[in-house]
Simulated scan of single mutants.
Amino acid sequence: MERGDESGKNNISQSTANKIEIDCVIFNFDEESLKVLLVKQKDNQGNINFELANDYIKEGETISGTAQKILKKYIGVDNFFLEQLKAFGYPSPSSAQEDISIGYYAMVKRDIEEIEDEIFNPNVAWVNINEVSGLNDKHKVILDFSLKELRKNICQSAIGFNLLPDKFTLLQVMHLYEEILGIEINKSNFRRKILQMDLIKDLNEKEEAVSHRAAKFYSVNLQQHEMLAHRELNFNF
């Protein structure tokens, strides 16, 4: 699922492609924690630094095609939400002209262990969003902007469910919103509001082998999800 600037479908000439970088902020919600995929890089002194997943647009490629290629390289599947953010300008290290980066943010719902089992890359790390360090200034700006967009959009639409597994508990949904928004949510009010929206459906399944009271499993009501995706919501918890 992808949204973005339609102009991104146009092919980019070779002369322009060398100056345009696609930077992807890849989010995952795992163990009640929002994480971002970072790529390890060594500088000239041998120090380890981190950067966002990125690549330059090659001749004949499109903006959106390059972004999708980056996602598939690092997570190996087509099951992700991808949205274009905007273009970012930054000083060029090789000329007086400004270089351009086009930012995207993505949401991956698969278990991190499952992704890592399929694509083992020792240069990739999933880092808690509150523990990110070592990014260059350009990637710090893109990451901060993507977080602001994510926090705004999960309160105005149902896109947050793209971070949840196919079946989930209401508590998992609540923890997702608490983690991203950095707030505490009243459990009963949250439950009532989510159920009133008819956004999820009861699977008639419960957790098994748990020490606490078994919670019900739900899944996204796809028909309602598509309908709500086209109008603004107000998830004011």
Results as ranks from 00 to 15, higher is better:
Glu2Ala: 07
Arg3Ser: 14
Gly4Arg: 00
Glu6Arg: 05
Gly8Lys: 06
Asn11Ala: 12
Asn11Ser: 13
Ser13Glu: 15
Ser13Cys: 07
Gln14Trp: 01
Gln14Phe: 05
Gln14Thr: 13
Ala17Leu: 01
Ile20Tyr: 05
Asp23Gly: 13
Val25Glu: 11
Phe27Gly: 04
Phe27Met: 09
Phe27Asn: 05
Phe27Thr: 03
Phe29Lys: 01
Phe29Thr: 07
Leu34Cys: 03
Lys35Asp: 00
Asp43Thr: 05
Gly46Thr: 10
Asn47Phe: 12
Leu52Thr: 01
Ile57Pro: 01
Lys58Gly: 13
Ser64Pro: 03
Thr66Gly: 01
Thr66Val: 09
Lys73Asn: 11
Lys73Asp: 14
Asp78Ile: 01
Asn79Ile: 05
Asn79Arg: 06
Phe80Leu: 02
Phe80Val: 01
Phe80Asp: 02
Leu82Pro: 01
Glu83Pro: 00
Gln84Met: 11
Lys86Gly: 02
Ala87Asn: 15
Ala87Pro: 02
Gly89Pro: 07
Gly89Leu: 07
Gln97Glu: 14
Tyr105Glu: 06
Ala106Phe: 00
Val108Arg: 00
Val108Met: 03
Asp111His: 11
Ile112Pro: 03
Ile115Val: 05
Ile115Ser: 01
Ile119Trp: 00
Ile119Thr: 06
Asn121Thr: 03
Asn121Arg: 13
Pro122Met: 09
Val124Gln: 09
Val124Cys: 14
Asn128Thr: 12
Asn128Pro: 09
Asn130Ser: 14
Asn130Val: 03
Ser133Met: 15
Gly134Arg: 08
Gly134Ile: 06
Val141Tyr: 02
Leu143Glu: 07
Lys148Pro: 04
Lys148Cys: 06
Ile154Gly: 03
Cys155Asn: 13
Gln156Glu: 15
Ser157Thr: 13
Phe161Asn: 02
Pro165Ala: 10
Asp166Gly: 11
Phe168Gly: 00
Leu171Gln: 13
Met174Ile: 03
Glu179Gly: 04
Leu181Val: 08
Gly182His: 07
Ile183Asp: 11
Ile185Gln: 07
Lys187Glu: 15
Lys187Gly: 03
Ser188His: 10
Ser188Val: 10
Phe190Met: 04
Arg191Glu: 14
Arg191Ala: 06
Lys193Ala: 07
Gln196Ser: 15
Asp198Gln: 15
Ile200Gln: 05
Lys201Met: 13
Asp202Phe: 05
Asp202Pro: 06
Leu203Asn: 15
Asn204Ile: 04
Glu205Ile: 00
Glu207Asn: 10
Val210Ser: 08
His212Arg: 08
His212Glu: 13
Arg213Gln: 15
Ala214Trp: 00
Ala214Arg: 12
Ala215Ile: 00
Ala215Cys: 07
Lys216Ala: 14
Phe217Ala: 03
Tyr218Pro: 00
Ser219Leu: 09
Val220Asp: 04
Asn221Gln: 06
Leu222Ile: 10
Leu222Glu: 15
His225Asn: 15
Glu226Gly: 04
Leu228Ile: 13
Ala229Ile: 03
His230Pro: 06
His230Cys: 10
Glu232Phe: 09
Asn234Cys: 07
Phe235Val: 03
Phe237Gln: 03
